[in-house]
Simulated scan of single mutants.
Amino acid sequence: MIKNKLIILSLIGLSFISCNLKNGKIENIRKGELNPTVELIKVEEKKFILDSNTAPQPQYTQLYQDSSYKRKFTFLNTYTNSIYIYDYETAEYIREISYDKEGPNGIQRPMGYLIKNLDSIYIFDQLTNSLILSNDDGKVKNKISLIGDKDPKNTEWSLSYPQYYPLTVAPLIETTQELLFTGMYAWAIPDSLLEKFHFTSRIDLSSSKVSFGHGYPATLYGSEFNWDDPIYTAVYSDLHPDGNKLIYSFPVSHDLYLANLDSSLYKTFYGGSNFAGTISSLEEKKSSPSHAEMGVHIAGTDLYGGIKYDKYRKVYYRFLRNAMSDVSKDSNWKEKPLSVIIMDKDFNYLGETNIGTLKNYNWENSFVSKEGLNIEYLHENDINEVYLSLHIFVPEEI
């Protein structure tokens, strides 16, 4: 049963009601009413040559600026337990940073990282659910448990602490004093946890103390809804330009949720598509749908993705995995069209562009540079996996 307290908290500060919520359905009441003035245009492609141990679609990438103000494009090779470094400007390979899998410097299952500098590299080890501070010599300097020092092999920790699956589009975020790391509750969240489960960890850089904040809105994930898969419960976040707020994009909501780092209250803004329809949850009686049923539902449902702020152009980009029409058990949800919604700094709709399908673009590897929005492009004819390719897009007036 949805708690009255949560309903009140979710409604505080609403700029306007953008969707109706009823019987497991989230309606887009602004569908067909939005007027586009901007579209996304591809302006450049960058290709990074890969070695024989590396494939496209890496787990995680990061663009960072070194001490000499040169931009480096890096990505994680989980096969070799290493981070590859390239010159972003020239796409030339520079070096790799390798880590042991065992022993005092072991990082058993790296899944994401944040390079502050080459002496301070924070790496998330999924197997131990810890954030490990290391350097470019592969030396471990500190380990910070993200599950309160609980045994990672005892899965009861997942009832109290978020599960993390870091992505380039939803990365570890550095602020002046801490790291922000947004996770999720992977399956259907019960009402008994809804009020107390928080998915964003805050790691103090000076003390290594970990605290948690922000939770699922009951108006999206309460008992009225059945979102029994990580594709629905994933949480995408980006830092607001004022540096003290996080913007959240939930896959099942046409709205965006804005929260101060020190507050549990959300303010919502419409951030939806002119074409997305009603988002309906799984049938309530189907607590464990079959693989085929889940595939049909995913293929036929509009699902939002990451939200990225472009400080160079003062716009937001939000990904949308559009619903396919005429879906069946034979439908491949990788054929879903992929769109990018563009909003101004106040979340006003500017337009949206369909850039291809999920087969064409690994949208989870996306980031903003001064050149534009970088999205990993998947070349169908690159059967030998020679390149990691980035398409760069910029918004232009129609």
Results as ranks from 00 to 15, higher is better:
M1K: 10
I2D: 14
L6E: 12
S10P: 01
L11F: 06
I12K: 09
G13F: 03
N20G: 13
N20H: 12
N20M: 11
E27R: 00
E27I: 06
E27S: 15
E33W: 05
N35C: 13
P36F: 07
T37K: 11
E39I: 12
F48N: 04
I49W: 02
L50W: 07
L50A: 09
A55F: 14
A55R: 15
Q65T: 13
Q65W: 08
S67C: 12
S68A: 15
Y69P: 00
F73Y: 11
T74Q: 00
F75D: 09
Y79A: 13
T80L: 11
Y84I: 11
E92P: 04
S98L: 07
D100A: 15
G106L: 05
P110D: 10
P110N: 03
K116L: 13
N117W: 01
N117Q: 03
Q126P: 02
L127C: 08
L131D: 11
L131Q: 00
S134G: 05
D136I: 07
G138M: 07
I144L: 02
S145Y: 01
G148W: 00
K150N: 14
D151N: 15
E156T: 08
W157I: 08
S158K: 13
S158H: 00
S160R: 04
P166K: 01
V169Y: 06
E174L: 13
T175W: 05
T175Y: 04
T176F: 03
L180H: 01
Y185H: 11
D191A: 13
S192W: 02
K196R: 12
F197T: 03
H198A: 12
F199D: 06
S201A: 15
S201Q: 01
I203R: 01
L205W: 00
S208C: 10
S208F: 14
F212G: 10
Y221G: 03
D228T: 14
A234C: 06
D238E: 01
H240A: 08
P241L: 00
K245S: 13
L246E: 00
I247C: 09
F250W: 02
F250I: 06
V252R: 00
V252Y: 01
V252H: 00
S253A: 15
S253L: 06
D255C: 05
L256S: 12
Y257H: 12
A259D: 10
Y266N: 05
T268S: 14
T268D: 03
G271E: 06
G272C: 08
S273N: 05
P289H: 02
A292F: 09
H297A: 04
A299E: 07
G300V: 05
L303C: 02
I307S: 11
I307P: 11
K314G: 08
Y317S: 10
Y317F: 12
L320Y: 08
L320C: 07
N322S: 14
A323C: 10
D326N: 15
D326V: 09
S328M: 07
D330P: 04
E335I: 04
K336E: 01
K336G: 09
P337C: 01
P337A: 04
I341K: 02
I342L: 06
N348G: 08
L350N: 05
L350E: 08
T353Y: 01
T353V: 06
T357K: 08
N362R: 08
W363H: 14
S369W: 00
E371M: 09
I375H: 03
E376R: 07
N381P: 04
N381S: 14
D382C: 07
D382Y: 01
V386M: 14
Y387D: 15
S389Q: 12
S389L: 04
E396S: 13
I398H: 14
